[in-house]
Amino acid sequence: MSDGIIIRAEGITKRYVMGAETVHALRGISLDIRRGQYVSIMGPSGSGKSTFFNIIGGLDKPSDGEVAMDGCRYSALSSSQMAWVRCHKIGYIFQSFNLIPTMTALENVAIARIFAGRAPADARKDAAESLGQVGLGNRLTHLPSELSGGQQQRVAIARAIVNKPAIILADEPTGNLDLHTGEEIIALLGHMKDAMRITVITATHDMKMLSASDVVVWIADGAVKRMANRDEVKIEIGSIDGHVT
């Protein structure tokens, strides 16, 4: 099962009706993502990349098509079951970190554990452990405003992994970070993927992501334009710009 398919997207379309006009954000995407892979979804803004990303993350509903995780279709789940899936199966990482500003680093991570049904005291213990794993064991009582961007993103990673999810969904995780910090975050995600056997899916513009990825998917005009494994990407790294911009 370790090499099985964790996410299967079949014929995903998304239409937005804006007045008299219908915008086709996604025009039928089918994609399998294997367990334990690091998948980067690339594409220019407006390509439908974010929409697709949100749909496979269970944050948005497709107009047509199905997404299944571990063979379980999102459309068959009640909202409470979907909340359970988001809580236990998926860790989300955002471009702007999205920490709760009124909670300390420890509380930000612990709340995710509380949603998973742990008692507050145990949740804090798990959260401290998780923050230790991302190298923030000495920043537990700091508020997000007292942390640097890179540290905030580490808290977000600790929060994403605290429930030991099957998947981490990272939306432009390096978008608000400088070059060096961005590399650190990518390396940390790669490390979590290997250490905890988590599938990492990122939506990104960031070329630095490519070297860490097992699979790169290019999306343009609401369709998969190209898919490549790590080896192919490395060979072609000089010519990639044409696909992305």
Partner: peptide, 8 residues
């Protein structure tokens, strides 16, 4: 964000 973390 809270809903992403599993809040109902």
């Amino acid at each position: 964000t809270l809903k992403c973390l599993g809040a109902e």
